[in-house]
Design a protein around this nucleic acid. Structure first.
Lengths: 334, 334
DNA sequence: ATGAAAGCGCTAACAG
DNA sequence: CTGTTAGCGCTTTCAT
């Protein structure tokens, strides 16, 4: 069943049917006739043919490390919600396979999206290396970046205020009276979650005239398991006795608390623990985790909106944005 | 840059270029020439035009309640992984909006996928009502169902062995010596996670000649928050003193443990708690949760494979399958 | 093996 | 306002 069939059944030309379909003025009696045939046949115009003519696919690509962490799935939820509302669909690609990261995967994914003829892509970079920046410089599909500003490109970015978030939560620990605060974070190559959060930690200490001790800083991975081993590493270093630990991610905090428990420390009585992200479980954990909340669903909606803005208004300059945060004071830090 | 341009640059006809592109035998010198032009120009054939001719979009739709729970995101990961490998892309739609469920959403989503011209859909039903079954009866796009067999349709399904999983974990509790085991589950309208898991619980008791007490059975929701309130409801009913609680989902178990803690019970010393799903956090929880493990990533790969089988071989009868499970004995049950 | 031409299902330009 | 026609970019007969 195609437009030609409908035209014949209604006794008009294909063009007229097309006009009815696209709400273009048509003699009322014709419109009525066509509408009736449309209803009777349940005809749906072929989307692909339309796409071929209009050069629009109403497809948006999203590239991210993984959808598994809580954080990401909330973002996807937000992106999807907004996109659906605006008539677009989401094509997902994940770049983190079996825990392995590589810039090759990212470029492949980016290339794939072009090939797939998406109208735009939401890119959540994993590792930012010169090759990717170089490649992105002449990426000719509308693109926005989430979590990191891609220096050297003009790609609009939506980032999180990780520096101030980290600073705030450490300040909270300090306000609580802690004098010996350790940090379990991620290597600096991860700018936002790694470098910025650590910098927030250090600056909070500095501003309170507290010493910064490299022995109290661990740079590990971002999984729960790695949080566990980082905590072990920290606690077995000389005879440190931190009264509080700031973990760069809730997941790391979980791993940390898991280790502390096993090692016989009580949280928060012996050691306070805080994180960032406010994972779904954090408020139900034992003890409930003090952490930083970001509105990830909204984040998804905003980044999707930024992209649609570029797509529908290519000359407009889309500005970078930064998500705010709020602190959730709960039982894991006293 | 289109195929005509390439043809001109290479001094051959469009047809020849098309043949080179599709690995159809062509005089070697032509092929070489075309290949060179292809490389020089970086030309990529227009996918949409190809789709229009071939009537294949290489698009697969997936409809599910939400991607947020751990379980689902792992499945998506598996689906996506397999699909990418086979050259297909995934279009996601979620039907659970702001905690609301409705069959209207599901039908809309199903309709949307057809309109999107996907080649097949992976359907994770939420609530199965007669209208949806009726609608599905003449759904003409290849479709498979995950988690539930859709009775009244001939749609192949991949399900979980929830009945035996529940039975096994309750048996484990019994083997541990528990005589008073309560159940916090989901309403029966959810066949697999609700009805089947409860039936597994009851049958395990029966087979051990233990009484089934309605007061010890709570039918609640499937969120963490609801797990919390269900636990409260259970523990405040008369003067029950269950020594163990079987929660139908890990998430419910988290909520349950959270309540128990707040109410002054120790897990597992006072009350053992077990769940089903083996969420990412379960082994790191305090105490580590005893639960049932399903391989969700593999599940995703299998369901995707079942769908591709139908798509590529429409006459073949694809058989229903059931995922196995294994029990993870950890610290939350003693 | 190759090229000319038709056609996939639709929209848009052009006459009328 | 309507119908005819061309054309989107590709694949696929069908002669050659």
């Amino acid at each position: 069943m195609n437009i030609k069939d409908i035209a014949q059944l209604a006794g008009v030309s294909k063009a007229t049917v097309s006009r009815v379909l696209n709400n273009i003025k048509v003699r009322p009696e014709y419109k009525e006739k066509v509408d009736r045939v449309l209803k009777e046949t349940g005809y749906k115009p072929n989307r692909i043919a339309r796409e071929l003519v209009s050069k629009k696919t109403k497809l948006i690509g999203m590239i991210m490390p993984s959808i598994k962490p809580n954080v990401y799935s909330h973002v996807v939820e937000g992106v999807n919600r907004l996109l659906q509302k605006k008539g677009y669909s989401l094509i997902l690609t994940t770049t983190l396979e079996f825990g392995q990261q590589s810039s090759k995967h990212e470029v492949e994914a980016l290339e794939f999206m072009k090939d797939r003829q998406v109208e735009g892509v939401i890119y959540v970079p994993q590792i930012i290396c010169p090759e990717i920046i170089e490649y992105l410089k002449d990426y000719d599909t509308p693109i926005v970046s989430l979590t990191e500003k891609l220096k050297g490109t003009s790609i609009p970015a939506l980032t999180f205020d990780d520096y101030n978030a980290a600073k705030s939560i450490v300040q909270h620990l300090i306000d609580l009276g802690h004098k010996d605060i350790a940090f379990i974070g991620i290597t600096d190559e991860y700018y936002a979650t790694g470098f910025l959060r650590k910098k927030g930690y250090m600056d909070a200490l500095k501003e309170n005239n507290m010493p910064i001790d490299d022995d109290r800083i661990i740079n590990g991975g971002f999984t729960l398991v790695e949080g566990y081993s980082s905590a072990r590493e920290l606690m077995n270093k000389g005879n440190l006795k931190p009264t509080a630990i700031f973990a760069a991610l809730d997941r790391i905090a979980y791993g940390t608390m898991s280790y502390l428990n096993k090692a016989g420390y009580r949280v928060p009585e012996d050691i306070s623990v805080v994180g960032i992200d406010d994972d779904d479980l954090s408020s139900y954990y034992t003890p409930p985790l003090t952490t930083i909340y970001y509105d990830f669903v909204k984040t998804g909606e905003i980044i999707a909106n930024m992209l649609l803005q570029i797509i529908n208004d290519r000359q407009v300059l889309v500005e970078d944005r930064k998500m705010g945060f709020s602190i959730r004071k709960r039982g894991s830090a006293i």
